[in-house]
Design a protein around this nucleic acid. Structure first.
Lengths: 195, 195
DNA sequence: GACGAATTAGGGCGATCGTCCTAATTTTCA
DNA sequence: TGAAAATTAGGACGATCGCCCTAATTCGTC
């Protein structure tokens, strides 16, 4: 049963390498070296690189799901939950600075490769989109919730992209503050008139 | 002197291939085939792949500079000029849908590769940043201009990333409309109070 | 302790990568 | 027009790619 652990170690290593270097530039040899196993052993667990990619995507989805569940348990209001999402940028800023958003950069790379797993990667976005939409639905009419979810998703992606490019800490701080102010404005207008 | 034309054809082909497939996945063979020249001839013009990349970045910078200059001539107000920037998303939506933003995806890839030319690619962003900043400076106090430029740049990047992922035309239209409304609000409050 | 299954190691497959070289051809211009 | 320079073609280099095979070792179970 030690094979199961090796397999998950491979996926974890591939997850990080795909994030840091990208899917295409990461080779079997890179992953095998990181896990400290031979390439032959490697092949016993995964026949193709795409198999690993699928597993990595599933792992990322599972990781995000447990994270979202935790936020749902730990925070009592939708506004605080959405704020946790915005905080990702601050918490992971060191990694984002160097490698961008793990989800945004993966979907972008797979789009360019015209890779079959592209839609599976997009599903990672959908995970956040639906979760945010459910939170916003508690603050605004249901019809607007998904639009706000997409708006916030887009804004965080833009912030990650430009932070990765310019690496300007002040900019990131401003964007986070602006998103939180935007969020406060939405939850403040919950029962009042529009805007 | 025909060598000059071949050289620029190589750069043009590389430009498009780097955009469509990414820098790393594009091979010498890909470019040579697209230009219909032998790989040997290819080597006569460019010794290394990085040389081509640098030339491609310079070409992209030149293309954008002429585009920005044209906007400056064709539009009489800063608001209309900034609107031209926002319109990029609509005009290039077919390409963005498939391959994302040429500048955003290149800087992202080079960041992952830890490539020496990363900062040169970031300079493409700076081109737009400074141009937008100059336009905003005619609408708001100079201290706020750069922040607004970064904000708009970020928002357009986020829109491009999510449009590339979800390929939702309604979303892109909404984002464009929202950016234009945001812009109208800024230029309307030019001489009035803040917000 | 033995035996079948699971796991590991290591090497080799053809293909392609970026790069480089040489020789043939074309162009330039005294 | 003839020699020098610029351009082109085509192939070969070692390295590495994803992928596959076989043999050895470890493990689980009776």
């Amino acid at each position: 049963m030690a094979g199961r652990r090796t397999r998950s170690e491979i996926v974890a290593a591939a997850d990080e390498l795909f994030y840091r270097m990208g899917f295409e530039p990461t080779s079997f040899a890179d992953i095998a070296e990181k896990v400290n196993i031979s390439r032959g052993n490697f092949y016993h667990h995964f026949k193709t690189k795409d198999e690993i990619l699928n597993e990595v995507i599933q792992k990322r989805a599972a990781d995000r799901r447990t994270m979202l569940d935790a936020w749902e348990q730990e925070e009592s209001t939708p506004e605080r939950r959405i704020a946790r999402f915005i905080d990702i940028l601050a918490i992971n800023c060191d990694k984002i600075r160097l490698h961008g958003c793990p989800i945004g950069t993966l979907t972008g790379e797979l789009a360019k490769l015209d890779h079959p797993a592209r839609e599976e990667a997009t599903a990672l976005f959908t995970l956040f989109r639906n979760w945010l939409s459910r939170q916003f639905a508690q603050l605004v009419p249901h019809k607007e919730a998904d639009r706000l979810a997409m708006e916030l998703l887009a804004r965080s992606q833009g912030a990650a992209t430009l932070y990765n490019a310019f690496r300007d800490d002040d900019f990131l701080r401003r964007e986070i503050a602006a998103m939180k102010a935007w969020l406060a404005g939405i939850s403040a207008g919950r029962k009042s008139a529009h805007d």
